[in-house]
Design a binder for these strands. Sequence first.
DNA 1: TTTACATTCAAACAGGCGTTTGATACGCTC
DNA 2: GAGCGTATCAAACGCCTGTTTGAATGTAAA
Lengths: 213, 213
Amino acid sequence: MMTEAQIKTASEQTRARLLDAAREVFSQHGFQGATVREICRRAEANGAAVNYHFGSKDGLLAEALNFAPLKAMQKANVQAGDCPSMRLRLFIREFMLMLLDEKNPSSQCQIMARELADPTPALDKIVREAIAPMHEFLGKLVREIAGDKVGAAELRRCVHSIFGQCLFYRHSQPVLQRLHPRLRYDHKEIEAIAGHIAEFSLAGIKRLAEERA
Amino acid sequence: MMTEAQIKTASEQTRARLLDAAREVFSQHGFQGATVREICRRAEANGAAVNYHFGSKDGLLAEALNFAPLKAMQKANVQAGDCPSMRLRLFIREFMLMLLDEKNPSSQCQIMARELADPTPALDKIVREAIAPMHEFLGKLVREIAGDKVGAAELRRCVHSIFGQCLFYRHSQPVLQRLHPRLRYDHKEIEAIAGHIAEFSLAGIKRLAEERA
DNA sequence: TTTACATTCAAACAGGCGTTTGATACGCTC
DNA sequence: GAGCGTATCAAACGCCTGTTTGAATGTAAA
């Protein structure tokens, strides 16, 4: 016999299982590469469950997305209260952990990163609610470091340089795996990469600032 | 009546048209997103032409790839004979033009860049014959700038930082288009981006060199 | 227990994909 | 011009995709 609470969430459990499976498969295979059948198989649900609970594959993606971890990271970064350079280091570290750490439960970033290249119906929402705010956030941070002399276009390109370096390790993973087969992206390696990107970028930003001063 | 030369190249003309169309569609839609039917439509050939001339879609991709422009670029870079920093600026400029300039006839880079994210049967060949040599080439160039004190892992991460910045503008194009709808990647803008990446990276490399000195 | 509703299920559907087929048209050799 | 091998063609094949269907199941109210 089920208790009342369990009964109430009977279908919500399969909903939750579908969402979990969807995040897993989407982050591994991308939206196009993922199949509804495999998601249902991993969720131990019937093949029609996705369309029953979410209307379509697109609807499933829309509900599987969750921008909370990203926003929480930004909020925590502001509250850290360190100097701008230190906050940039912190930001890059957290971001790389989201992108690369397999143990990280929030595969949101990994899903989004996959969608950057080939658009899906959800990309507009992703850009509006997650990417644009994040670029703006990082823009302000870089502004604090670079000062007021650097132009808007130059500042934007600095932000692009930082995101480009970070995303490279995710986008080009199949290539990197072939180039350096022995390399494993464990926690230590991720932190080393994040440290490099931070120092590399800080040097670039400060040089630009000095140039314009 | 056709001349003998024209007759001889009768089927080779459709072969060439197919290859041109394939490079176009592959670079625009990626390998998975491209369809044999559309390639044949653009080449004004029958739907069975691809399999007749190239055996399969995979075979078409393999023959559509051409690493000559990349190798030519590297060779020209060595022969330029400038100082390492200047050669790095030159390399990034040429690379960005290959990646972004729509007028650039060699869409090879654009095809390859698309394949980085999700592997195809041709990725091993691409990595072996194009990407690995290019990483090696850029590694030597960075070594000249950074000196002997920086470690191998640090050097490798510098190379990754440079490629990451460059590839970002291609991988994230759908996102960038939404973030900055007005921005056009004309020749002038591409050169500005290339200049930024070069100076940004040179600062990062030199800082690392000073740190280890 | 009976009724009504929400959820699950196996099966099929419609469409797109890469690929194959057998016939047709073509160009060259004899 | 007859014969032959190559290239092109429309059509179909087999497979996989997201989605729909209608029956079967289970649950909660009357």
